[in-house]
């Protein structure tokens, strides 16, 4: 898919917080040169552990925080100084929801919709997200997942071109998560630029067209899910095979980067397999020990593998 003109371009973004009393009044650098771009018709994901700087990056991109260095361009404007015209084209779902506890969902959504010239069809949106079932219960009494759906609807109330979703699946049960994910994909297919953050690999893997992995305020890796999972620091094609057999097997004495590790009693991972011959070696070792595994599986690498590798290796792209 040819990438359209990016809706969001973040370039070497820096943000300091503080002064922090516990650090003798020093400033803390939360973002140290984050760069990313997000285009229409794509889901762009910021993946990182808690405290990596994802929400701060979004807050700067939304204009809620002013950058201390670098630039942010959202739909061609600087969000920190832009007015209602830019805000009318952007929908935001905050991590903490930002919903008044004493309000009722439908009342709040209609109020938010009233801020726009051409709002979304609130009734249809509420129906779609299953909000109609609790539309007249005060937000205080809703579950985390219900609130999350109201916050998503509020972000979409103005028919935005760009949507920021901070941890959209937090607190959702599996069914709501599917509903929310289906809607996100549909919005993407309609041409919206969707920027989301998550610390859940599975979400990133399921939804993203492009992923930026950030850690301690810097970019550490980026690419499509398949690009990222194909990437290793040493060897692009190495696979890991998992098998179960009786516990306590003596590992083979391989010296060329291949290894077998017992990760839990009776569950083994064979790392660094690159060719069918490597598989034959593994089978030869089983034969030596008189082992016939109960289960064998070779899976594609997941984002989690990539993430752990980066986090452990400290390699920074």
């Amino acid at each position: 898919m040819p990438a359209a003109e990016p809706s969001l371009v973040v370039d070497r973004l820096r943000k300091d917080f503080g002064p922090v009393a516990a650090l003798n009044g020093r400033m803390v650098r939360v973002l140290d040169g984050i760069s990313l771009s997000a285009s229409p018709g794509r889901v762009t994901t910021l993946l990182g552990s808690n405290g990596a700087g994802k929400s701060t990056t979004l807050a700067c991109a939304q204009g809620l925080l002013k950058a201390d260095g670098g630039t942010v361009r959202l739909l061609g404007e600087d969000p920190a100084s832009a007015g209602s015209r830019l805000r009318s084209r952007v929908g935001v779902m905050l991590q903490d929801g930002g919903l008044p506890p004493s309000a009722k969902p439908m009342e709040l959504l209609r109020h938010v919709a009233g801020m726009y010239r051409n709002p979304a069809d609130i009734a249809a949106l509420a129906e779609r997200l299953g909000i109609s079932d609790f539309s007249h219960t005060t937000i205080r009494r809703l579950s985390g997942g219900q609130r999350q759906r109201v916050a998503l609807a509020a972000a979409l109330a103005g028919n935005p071109e760009v949507v920021f979703l901070d941890e959209p699946s937090a607190g959702l049960d599996p069914q709501s998560r599917q509903t929310v994910f289906d809607l996100i994909v549909e919005l993407r297919d309609r041409g919206l630029c969707i920027v989301l953050t998550t610390h859940l690999m599975e979400d990133a893997q399921r939804l993203s067209d492009y992923v930026y992995i950030i850690d301690r305020g810097v970019n550490v890796a980026e690419g499509t899910v398949s690009e990222l999972t194909a990437r290793t620091s040493s060897d692009a094609d190495a696979r890991t095979l998992e098998f179960s057999a009786r516990p306590g097997l003596q590992p083979p004495l391989w010296t060329d980067g291949r290894s077998v590790v017992e990760v839990s009693a009776g569950r083994y991972l064979a790392h660094g397999l690159r060719t069918p011959a490597d598989l034959a070696d593994l089978a030869g070792w089983w034969q030596q020990l008189g082992v016939f595994p109960d289960a064998v599986s070779m899976q594609p690498r997941t984002l989690e593998d990539v993430f752990l590798e980066i986090a452990e290796g400290g390699t920074r792209a």
Binding site: L64, S84, R87, V90, V92, L94, G98, M115, Y116, A154
Partner: peptide, 8 residues
């Protein structure tokens, strides 16, 4: 925070 991201 939320309302300040809307046109309001």
């Amino acid at each position: 925070r939320f309302l300040s991201t809307t046109p309001l």
